[in-house]
Amino acid sequence: MKSGLMFVKLVNPCSGEGTIYLFNMCLQQLFEIKVFKEKHHSWFINQSVQSGGLLHFATPIDPLFLLLHYLRKADKEGKFQPLDQVVVDDMFPNCILLLKLPELEKLLQHVTEEKGIVREIDKKKYYKYSKEKTIKWLEKKVNQTVAALKTNNVNVSARVQATAFFSGDQASSDKEEDYICYAHGLVSDYIPRELSDDLCKYLKLPEPSASLPNPPSKKVKLSDEPVEAKEDYTKFNRKDWKTEKKNNKMTAAQKALAKVDKSGMKSIDSFFAAKNKKKT
């Protein structure tokens, strides 16, 4: 049995590490999974306790960020190539699922030069990474992120601690450059370091000290009210599939493993369930 919904591991375009993504093959949509993780939390879920207190968020991600990873890699050969030769990965073979997403041709226009005429016989388009186009595309990403940061009242000021004591509208006093820096930082979480640096120069931002670890920001000023998403979520609602959040159920055994010597044990972080309901 297969459903249209599956979690797979793909390469994270920022870290290069394997990271969980969710495909909805029915709606042809890709989601990233962020996990809320803070020390000292547990869930009570009905009549059970769940260690860890994790909360997962599945939110739609622009697949172009993931494709960009492969396009840049393929660009080392310096030639136009069909997408199915670009998106290949020995480590994460599920990357081929990306090819099933809709409107890829339209997406790829933002970051590639393409050739399709020459080899029309096999109806393949050939693509080549374009740094210039990519930077322009990323600039647009930064701009729309800036707009959202403002509507969502995110405190982008570098002077977090100094402003934490002001209650009302310090957001309005934040400088435009702070917003752009912040948005650049957020977008940089989806692209490799090199590209992030190029984008930084292109946007004429100061040296990215923002990418240094841990600004002194214990107090976070958040918007008072959850802001309605501008995006129309109803389109995810079809077939009862909504943007999905979930609790990670871990096995008691898994918890125990944290204290146990892991060598020789298979798959420490495989799965959640307290009890495996194996159905046949």
């Binding site: 968020f57 939110t59 997406l107 940061l149 969502n152 957020l186 998403a229």
Partner: peptide
Amino acid sequence: TWPSLAAAIHAQVP
């Protein structure tokens, strides 16, 4: 509040 910001970051660019 992440989902609403994520929607903006990942919306298609104009």
